[in-house]
Design a protein around this nucleic acid. Structure first.
Lengths: 142, 142
DNA sequence: TCTTGAAGCTCTAGTTGCTAGAGCACTTAG
DNA sequence: CTAAGTGCTCTAGCAACTAGAGCTTCAAGA
């Protein structure tokens, strides 16, 4: 049984974040010491590592909640978990596409900077006039 | 002079968002009609279009605030605006790199899915065990 | 055993960039 | 003139934390 600080070290999740996960019900309430301090065992550690890893992969907490409830239930078909991962993959792909368009536009802006005064600054000019864009950097992200 | 709804249509920025921008001081307080409704002219319209465009390019509001104050002052050197754009470009590049690593990992997870039960689900397994990752998808974004 | 400094506790509020809703007042077309 | 539609203010909520105040507990050294 380890206290919250050690759990934090072991998983790379900050202490307040661990408490936050508990508060929103992602982590079960752990046992407490005589002096009311949280004490965690192996299963909590593994669960938190799972959460951490999924967060690193960009899964939103809602998706992680679903994945955790699936993983608690090993007999159910894997398709649901797979769907969540595919959904995340689609989201990541959409964000990549969008960012590539943004990068192209930003590079154009920055390359054309003559380092003069604001009055003829390409950056300010392009921002003020969408018609100067080549790429049609999309509007929405999701 | 147009009311807020027309301004919203003209710029593609939603009405509550316009009011929010005013509240945080990105847009100046507009004149009002006899019945206390906001009325906007050309300059407000251009300023909002500028903000919109910069948001589409992913600039955070703080950066937009700087860019706006620069553009209010055409004699100052352009270098500051250029720096902000370069900073944004670096941020975009970092996010792209990170997302490419995530995509690779997610694709690996999804491809290996045998569509069996959760007990041997690749998705759940990889999430639970970081050692199964090939890519070292970085931890931090910024 | 005592002490002291680190680590833990709870609670509230702030962050970013909005969005949603309640409960009103105003404007405008028919 | 009326009714739909638009506008107003205000508060609260979203994700996913982060920071701070003000207190208690733990652990290691003297």
């Amino acid at each position: 049984m380890i206290p919250i600080g050690k759990l934090s070290e072991a998983t790379g999740v900050k202490v307040p974040t661990i408490r936050y996960y508990e508060q929103i019900g992602l982590l079960p309430q752990p046992g407490r010491s005589a002096g009311n301090q949280r004490l965690y065992g192996r299963p909590a550690q593994e669960r938190l590592a799972f959460i951490r890893h999924a967060r690193d992969l960009g899964f939103p907490l809602g998706a992680i909640r679903e994945l955790l409830s699936l993983s608690d239930d090993p007999d159910r078909p894997c398709a649901a978990a797979d769907d969540i991962a595919r959904r995340q993959l689609r989201a990541v792909n959409a964000r990549i596409d969008r960012l590539l368009a943004l990068r192209a536009e930003l590079e154009r802006m920055v390359e054309h900077c003559a380092r003069g005064t604001i009055a003829d600054c390409r950056v300010i000019e392009v921002l003020g006039n969408h018609a100067l864009c080549e790429e049609d950097h999309a509007e929405e992200e999701d």
